[in-house]
Computed example of a mutant assay.
Amino acid sequence: MAKKNTFDKIINIKNKKASYEFEFIDTFKAGLVLRGSEIKSIREGKVSLTEAYCYFKGEELFIKQMHIAPYTLATHYNHDPVRERKLLLQKQELRKLQNKFSEKGLSIVPVRIYINDRGLAKMEIALAKGKKIHDKRQSIKEKDAKRDLQRMAF
């Protein structure tokens, strides 16, 4: 009987700032083109998505300003922490995203990065629209009310 690969540490890094700043319209799961030391740093959980954003270069989708800390045990062949990385999506998803992205006021935001059950790094991206100030206040009120309900339950 074959053993199934299971990883001890579950990696699920979220971009909390994105849900506060944007209203998500549609979400997609994308693969990442990484170098060897980058995946090792992701497995250690040393990734920051707060300043990251996605853009199209021709027909391909790239992510910029995603910070992956250098791997401590790597030699002088370590990676650049904030280099732009290519995102892997199916052609029909790319076309759909590019058509929606051309509309005014929409942007593509990284929501979270995780390691799937096969050990591959995946990123969840969202087609998003920026929130107004009153929308942000409303989301803060909802979050506070939810927290108060959880406190009363205990």
Rank of each mutant, 00 (worst) to 15 (best):
1 M>I: 11
1 M>W: 13
2 A>V: 10
5 N>F: 10
7 F>Q: 03
8 D>F: 06
9 K>E: 13
11 I>L: 04
11 I>Q: 03
14 K>N: 07
15 N>K: 00
15 N>W: 00
15 N>M: 00
15 N>P: 00
16 K>R: 08
17 K>W: 08
19 S>E: 10
19 S>Q: 11
23 E>I: 14
26 D>F: 11
26 D>L: 12
26 D>K: 15
26 D>H: 13
26 D>E: 13
27 T>S: 13
30 A>I: 01
31 G>A: 04
32 L>P: 00
34 L>M: 07
36 G>P: 02
36 G>R: 05
37 S>N: 06
38 E>A: 06
38 E>D: 10
39 I>E: 03
40 K>V: 04
45 G>L: 06
46 K>P: 10
46 K>S: 10
47 V>E: 00
48 S>D: 10
49 L>T: 00
52 A>D: 04
52 A>N: 02
56 F>Y: 05
58 G>L: 08
58 G>H: 06
59 E>L: 15
59 E>D: 15
62 F>R: 13
62 F>P: 07
62 F>L: 14
66 M>H: 01
70 P>S: 09
70 P>C: 09
76 H>N: 13
76 H>V: 15
77 Y>T: 13
79 H>S: 03
81 P>W: 02
85 R>M: 11
86 K>D: 06
88 L>C: 03
88 L>A: 07
89 L>M: 04
89 L>R: 03
91 K>H: 12
94 L>M: 05
97 L>C: 01
105 G>T: 13
106 L>T: 08
106 L>D: 12
106 L>C: 12
107 S>P: 06
108 I>P: 01
109 V>R: 01
112 R>E: 04
112 R>Y: 03
115 I>H: 01
117 D>L: 12
119 G>F: 04
120 L>V: 14
121 A>G: 01
122 K>L: 01
130 G>I: 11
130 G>D: 08
131 K>F: 11
131 K>P: 06
131 K>Y: 05
133 I>F: 15
134 H>S: 12
139 S>M: 09
140 I>T: 05
141 K>S: 10
143 K>L: 06
145 A>P: 00
147 R>E: 13
147 R>K: 08
148 D>E: 15
148 D>P: 05
150 Q>S: 14
